[in-house]
């Protein structure tokens, strides 16, 4: 069976933005959890912080998987190609992998940054 083109990560731009999309989902989830918990369930944030830890670990695992797939697609150790400025299919494939990998790195930093306040702040007030 052949995959529809849109699901082929070698030529689909959607895989380029998987990392930051996961960042966005993590951000929205954490924001919504906090907004609802602090308004409805009280000021002591213990369970909320555990929840945020869980969501964060989940997001990091998913971004990690994406990063690994992008790294394989970039295939850096194969030919040490870094620029991808040629006209071949390989250049395009490795470019999407490379850019996707870099975006995963930013997304990991973003997710950790966003979760850090929950490591230090113990209450909603």
């Amino acid at each position: 069976m052949s995959w529809p083109k849109i699901l082929d990560r070698h030529q689909s731009l959607w895989f380029l933005i998987t990392g930051p999309t996961l960042w966005a989902l993590h951000f929205c989830t954490v924001y919504a959890m906090t907004a609802i918990y602090c308004e409805k369930l009280g000021d002591e944030a213990g369970p909320l912080r555990l929840g945020i830890l869980g969501v964060t670990l989940g997001a990091l695992v998913l971004i990690g998987i994406t990063a690994w797939l992008s790294w394989r697609q970039w295939d850096y150790t194969d030919d040490w190609d870094y620029e991808h400025d040629g006209l071949t299919v390989e250049d395009r494939r490795e470019f999407i992998g490379h850019a996707g990998f870099l975006l995963c790195v930013v997304s990991v930093i973003g997710v950790i940054y966003v979760a850090l306040p929950a490591a230090f702040v113990g209450s909603c007030v």
Binding site: P20, A24, T34, V106, G110, V114, L116, P117, V121
Partner: peptide
């Protein structure tokens, strides 16, 4: 692309003085 995404997670930093939960302020900060 990264700025395009992350810039959507900042809006509350214009609202730091509106009394939102400190944890929420932390995320946006």
């Amino acid at each position: 692309v990264g700025v395009g995404f992350l810039s959507f997670g900042l809006w509350v930093h214009h609202m730091f003085t509106t009394g939102l939960p400190s944890l929420s302020l932390g995320f946006f900060s």
